Every structure is written in C-alpha cells, then in structure tokens.
Simulated assay, not measured.
Amino acid sequence: MSTFSNPANSLILALSKGRIFDDTMPLLAAAGITVTENPETSRKLILATNDPHVRVIIVRASDVPTYVQYGAADFGVAGKDVLLEHGGEGLYQPIDLNIAKCRMSVAVNAGFDYDKAVRQGARLRVATKFVQTAREHFAAKGVHVDLIKLYGSMELAPLVGLSDAIVDVVSTGSTLRANNLVEVEEIMDISSRLVVNQAALKLKRERLQPILEAFERASRLNNQA
C-alpha cells in the first residue's frame, strides 16, 4: 500500500467539493493549472493536474485550515466563516479571492419577534456550527444566548423547538424561505480566502509565488466583474 507524501518539489492544494471547488477552477486556470478529474464523479480524494508537481486533495470545508496548518497541504481555499472558527493559527492569508460569496446571518421562525426578544433581554437559544462567531456577535450586542452546536440542517432547529434562532451562512435564502424562516440580522459578508502554510511559503516560495500572483490577478478581475 503506497503512502501519500508531500515532497519538497511538489505543491498540494486543499479544496472542498462544491462551490469553492468550482469557483477555484478559473483561478487555477489563470495559473496554467487544470485538474484532470471531477471530484463529483471520481471517488478519489487526491486529484492529479496537468502539472505533475501539483495535486489537489479534497477535504471537508471545515478541515481545509487544519490540513494547511500542519503542512499536509501547502495551500488551500477556505471561507472566511471557516477561518474565523479555526482562528487562523499557523496560516498566512494573503488574498481574499472574492469567490463563493455569501453572508452569515441570524434567522428565526417567521412568527418569532426577534427584536422584541432582544429588547426585553430574553436569553435566546441559538443553534449554529459557527459557535465562536455567534458568541462574539451576541456578546457585542449584550444579548444573552445559549449556543447549541449543530453540524447540519440548521433550519430544522427552530422548526422543532430546539432553538429560537440560528446563525448560518446564507446564499440565496431559498432554503430559509422553504422552511418558513426569515433573516433578521446580517452578521457579516463571507467570501473565500487563499491560505498558505507558513513553512511552505518560505521553503517553496519559488513554486508558490507564480500561482499566488495568478490567483491575485484573477481575484481582482472577479471583484471588478
């Protein structure tokens, strides 16, 4: 059984499936790199590219910073939401790529009077996977909350009485509307960042720098579009 390694002359990029992967492909193309397999149809978690020295590993979105921090990947793309929860330790974050844009918001059942509950100083039960961000947001507002950590299907929590509100990322809002939930407060805009392992930035700078520069140029064009 062969063991995957990260040799000194190679670069490993950590991505998650879905929107971040899709939005990163044009940035890679700007650097002359194309991924030769589709992670949605391939069962492989390590994908080759047209450059024999560049590979892509497919990991869970919340794990991207960890793979990069510990050097299993040299660089990766992660949402601001994920990086805030991770804390960014051991990571260099050079570029806001202006991709996978969304927002982090507070949402409640359509019939729940959120403003009144906040004004009256009620202790809110809030379900989220973004515990650190939610804690800081409500603390800054002086609102007392009991945070309930969930890993998926946030919209279900208010529907079954598990929570009064949720904190989650919102793109179109269609899932909220389908479940009779409404956004009551926007916490922050979210986009995806390029993160780089600090040791790789020093030891592999010659190989990394052209890709980082291509990403930066392409991200500026994204921002202007």
Results as ranks from 00 to 15, higher is better:
T24V: 11
V106C: 04
S5V: 11
E185W: 15
N50P: 14
D51Q: 09
H144D: 13
G88F: 04
K202E: 03
M1H: 15
T24I: 14
E85Y: 03
R193S: 03
L91V: 13
Y114A: 06
L13T: 11
P158K: 09
L203D: 01
V106T: 06
D63Y: 01
I211M: 09
A8K: 13
A107E: 06
L28M: 11
V196R: 00
R125D: 03
V160C: 14
L162T: 08
F215P: 08
F75M: 10
Q132A: 02
T175L: 12
V184K: 15
N9F: 15
R207L: 06
V169S: 05
L181S: 10
A117C: 05
P94V: 11
D164V: 04
G79T: 02
T172L: 15
T24A: 08
N109G: 02
S5T: 10
D51H: 03
A165N: 10
Q69G: 08
Y70N: 07
G87Y: 11
R125M: 09
P158M: 12
G76L: 02
K149Y: 04
G76W: 02
G76K: 00
A225D: 14
V145E: 12
D115L: 13
Q209G: 01
R123A: 05
A100D: 03
R123S: 06
F21K: 10
K80H: 01
A127T: 09
D146F: 03
H53L: 06
D51R: 05
G76D: 07
Y70V: 13
D96G: 06
V195H: 00
T66Y: 05
P39S: 03
A30Q: 04
G87Q: 05
G88H: 09
R193K: 09
R220T: 05
K17I: 00
M1G: 10
H137T: 12
N6Y: 09
V108N: 12
M154W: 07
L15G: 05
D168P: 15
E206P: 14
D81S: 00
T66C: 03
V54C: 04
G32Q: 07
P94D: 08
L15C: 07
G32K: 05
A200G: 09
F21C: 15
L13Q: 05
V54R: 06
I166K: 00
Y114C: 12
R43C: 11
R123L: 02
L91R: 03
V64K: 05
I46E: 08
A139G: 10
G79Y: 09
V59G: 03
L150M: 07
E37V: 13
D113W: 06
R207P: 14
D74W: 06
F75Q: 12
L47P: 15
A73Y: 04
K101V: 15
P52F: 11
P26F: 13
H86T: 06
E136H: 15
L47D: 12
I190P: 00
N222K: 09
R135A: 13
F215N: 12
N38M: 13
A122V: 15
M188E: 10
R123I: 09
